[in-house]
């Protein structure tokens, strides 16, 4: 119980952050033609920001399942790196059921908090951290999806930019310290803009996949090692 509470308390600030960001996701989902409960179902089953935003856009475009799968794979592959890192940090009580359960809730923010723990991770700590974050994410989605339509149009439109603001807040601070990251961000943005205006027949999902894979490959080829090595440890 002590471990569970510790995780729960440490997750409160994550949950508060999630509340407002998922509010903006809820609005976006309903504007894209989903029902309130479909929006909540997405948040309950996915628990991820970027993947859900892309997914809702693709669902609205009637994208093929293969495209949806590929988009989620590229967007969320970073989680594989995080759970890989966490697998080195788990204590002995992590057996198969605990691993299967914890896997559900590894987000960027939960990973960041958990990996900063000095001692090996216990399952109950992870459950507390994940549960409070899950509550913030799900309640925010429900509120945004349900009440978003009641708010003035200008306000809901303005809230639509919150998620993108959060994405910028994730990628820009590390870009100040790493030329590799800065290059990757600029290349991805440039290709994304090019595809949007020059190859209009290409769907948003594939444009995103192509832009990010090319940018990451260029980054890995031309800005190798030292950045990645040191950052990975505390990512």
């Amino acid at each position: 119980m002590h471990e569970f509470r510790k995780g729960f308390v440490q997750g409160v600030s994550i949950a508060l952050g999630y509340l407002s960001v998922s509010f903006s996701f809820g609005i976006l989902a309903v504007q894209s033609g989903l029902t309130v409960w479909q929006a909540v179902l997405i948040s309950v089953t996915n628990l991820t920001s970027a993947g859900q935003v892309a997914g809702v856009g693709l669902i609205a475009e009637h994208a093929a399942f293969a495209e949806l799968f590929l988009a989620e794979l590229v967007i969320n592959i970073r989680y594989a790196l995080m759970t890989l890192a966490l697998s080195q940090k788990t204590d002995r009580s992590f057996r198969l059921p605990q691993r299967l359960l914890t896997s559900y809730g590894v987000t960027d923010e939960i990973f960041a908090v958990a990996s900063l723990q000095p001692e090996p991770l216990k399952p109950k700590y992870m459950y507390g951290l994940i549960l409070i974050s899950f509550l913030g994410w799900t309640c925010g989605t429900w509120l945004g999806a349900a009440a978003g339509t009641l708010l003035p149009v200008k306000l809901t439109n303005a809230l639509g930019i919150a998620l993108y603001g959060m994405f910028l807040a994730i990628i820009l601070p590390p870009a100040r310290k790493s030329r590799g990251i800065l290059a990757v961000i600029l290349i991805a943005a440039a290709i994304s803009v090019f595809l949007k205006f020059a190859v209009t027949s290409l769907s948003g999902g594939f444009a995103m996949i192509i832009a990010s894979v090319i940018a990451a490959v260029i980054g890995a080829a031309f800005f190798p090692a030292d950045d990645a090595e040191s950052k990975e440890a505390d990512a």
Binding site: A50, V53, A54, V74, I75, I77, R78, A80, L81, D108, Y164, F167, L168, I170, I171, P174, A175, G180, I181, V184, I185, L186, I187, A188, A189, I191, S192, A207, M208, A211, S212, V213, A215, A216, G219, A220, F223, D227, A228, K231, E232, A235
Partner: peptide, 13 residues
């Protein structure tokens, strides 16, 4: 793997 999240979030934004 290290660069992919930055590329993805940039292209999405």
């Amino acid at each position: 793997l290290y660069y992919i999240p930055y590329a993805v979030l940039s292209a999405m934004t």
